[in-house]
Amino acid sequence: MDKNQTGIELMKEGKWEEAAQAFMEAIEAQPNDPVAYINFGNVLTAVGDNERAINFYNKAITLDENATAAYYSKGGVYYDEQNFEEAKNMYETALKKGLETGDNFFMLGMSLAQLGNSRLALPYLQRSTELLEQDAEAHFQYGLCLAREGVIDEAIKVLEEAIELDPQHADALYNLGVAYGYKEDGEKALEMFNRALDVQPDHLLAGNGKKLIEGKDLH
């Protein structure tokens, strides 16, 4: 097993220092291979040393301007720092250079959504659900984005898919309740708010939604 593979296995076990050591040895053995620099950057990101992580991703890009994983990883650092404009740029660059993974489409969509561009986010989030068929969060975020754009029937369908994948997704249940409320289906809305509260009893928004519906029923 090469040093990069060893390091990745150690990362999975949360052994950051040992993983860093393995990647450092990989860099020493092949100083012109961008992969080890990206992997080392990922260890630094995992332990919160974002500034040094960016330096390692940049080094990888210097060695190979088409190192898509380096742009993707840089995007992750910027996203975590809530620098959504830079995150978007990194995910876009990764996409242009051929990184057509579900995760990259998802993060590009999420960055655009965070920047308030739901309409631009939609096709990327939609593509992420096609590639990440079993990912409840991808379906949830796509459904949320559709709802923001007023495409309520489609939003309901996608949010229901999210809940099928993860019946414990309280936010998806809550937003499905909102969507049914928008369609003036109080019964379904109440059912979803109750289900959200079963999963997460302190879900304030679901609690408020429930009170609102039950208040209407009293009048």
Score class of each variant (00 low, 15 high):
residue 52 R to C: 04
residue 142 Y to I: 03
residue 73 S to V: 03
residue 91 Y to T: 05
residue 188 K to L: 03
residue 160 E to N: 13
residue 132 L to A: 08
residue 213 I to D: 03
residue 93 T to S: 10
residue 156 I to W: 00
residue 135 D to H: 07
residue 11 M to C: 08
residue 189 A to N: 09
residue 40 F to Y: 15
residue 7 G to T: 10
residue 19 A to V: 07
residue 179 A to M: 11
residue 212 L to N: 09
residue 84 F to M: 03
residue 189 A to S: 14
residue 99 L to N: 06
residue 21 Q to V: 06
residue 100 E to T: 11
residue 187 E to A: 13
residue 210 K to Y: 01
residue 196 A to M: 04
residue 173 L to V: 05
residue 132 L to Y: 00
residue 10 L to A: 05
residue 136 A to H: 04
residue 45 T to C: 09
residue 40 F to P: 05
residue 124 Y to M: 12
residue 18 E to D: 06
residue 133 E to N: 02
residue 90 M to W: 00
residue 189 A to E: 03
residue 133 E to H: 00
residue 153 D to E: 14
residue 110 M to L: 14
residue 178 V to S: 03
residue 134 Q to E: 13
residue 152 I to A: 04
residue 204 L to T: 11
residue 218 L to Q: 14
residue 150 G to C: 02
residue 203 H to M: 03
residue 62 T to F: 13
residue 159 L to Q: 09
residue 104 N to S: 01
residue 182 Y to F: 13
residue 117 N to V: 02
residue 195 R to G: 06
residue 197 L to W: 00
residue 46 A to M: 01
residue 100 E to Y: 07
residue 89 N to L: 09
residue 187 E to Q: 10
residue 219 H to V: 11
residue 123 P to C: 09
residue 156 I to E: 00
residue 45 T to D: 06
residue 89 N to E: 15
residue 109 G to I: 01
residue 32 N to V: 12
residue 3 K to D: 14
residue 30 Q to N: 15
residue 81 E to N: 11
residue 47 V to I: 15
residue 30 Q to V: 11
residue 42 N to D: 15
residue 73 S to A: 13
residue 163 I to R: 07
residue 104 N to E: 00
residue 101 T to Y: 04
residue 168 Q to V: 05
residue 32 N to Q: 14
residue 211 K to N: 14
residue 159 L to C: 11
residue 15 K to G: 00
residue 194 N to M: 06
residue 116 G to L: 13
residue 212 L to Y: 12
residue 200 Q to V: 10
residue 120 L to W: 01
residue 145 C to S: 13
residue 75 G to E: 02
residue 91 Y to A: 03
residue 171 D to P: 02
residue 80 D to E: 14
residue 180 Y to T: 07
residue 69 A to N: 10
residue 201 P to S: 10
residue 138 A to V: 02
residue 82 Q to E: 14
residue 216 K to R: 15
residue 95 L to M: 12
residue 128 S to T: 07
residue 145 C to H: 03
residue 38 I to W: 01
residue 200 Q to C: 08
residue 145 C to V: 09
residue 190 L to K: 07
residue 190 L to W: 00
residue 189 A to C: 06
residue 83 N to C: 07
residue 6 T to W: 10
residue 141 Q to M: 11
residue 79 Y to A: 13
residue 48 G to E: 04
residue 18 E to F: 00
residue 74 K to P: 02
residue 102 G to C: 04
residue 61 I to G: 05
residue 217 D to G: 08
residue 43 V to Y: 05
residue 51 E to Q: 15
residue 85 E to Y: 12
residue 89 N to Q: 12
residue 169 H to M: 12
